[in-house]
């Protein structure tokens, strides 16, 4: 209960800490980037509601599967059709 000390006020000081939570189990299908088609244009990133898309150190656009809810917007909006939605295994 490290947050116990804050209980005095409805204030959260650890800003952005929902990032600690995984929402992976919201998903029934997941986006997969086909590297050879992707131009790293960031269009998918600007339209992701979470955001669950980021650019890695090498400048490649990647999916953050802990935070992707599988809405499919990225696949729908990618101008290169580089993202496929793939069913999750059950």
């Amino acid at each position: 209960m490290k947050r116990r000390s804050e209980i005095l006020m409805p204030v959260v000081f650890e800003v952005g800490n929902t990032a600690e939570r995984s929402v992976a189990n919201w998903r029934d299908s997941k986006p997969v980037i086909e590297r050879r088609l992707c131009t790293n244009c960031l269009i998918c990133w600007i339209y992701c509601p979470e955001p669950a898309i980021f650019m890695d150190e090498g400048g490649l656009v990647q999916i953050d599967y802990e935070h992707c809810k599988g809405c499919g917007i990225c696949a729908e909006e990618c101008p290169r059709k580089a993202i496929k939605m793939v069913m999750e295994d059950v």
Binding site: G16, T18, E20, A52, D64
Partner: peptide, 13 residues
């Protein structure tokens, strides 16, 4: 980024 993921908006909000 000003908003972190892990929020509870519906898919595709």
């Amino acid at each position: 980024e000003g908003l972190s993921p892990g929020h509870s908006a519906c898919r595709g909000c």
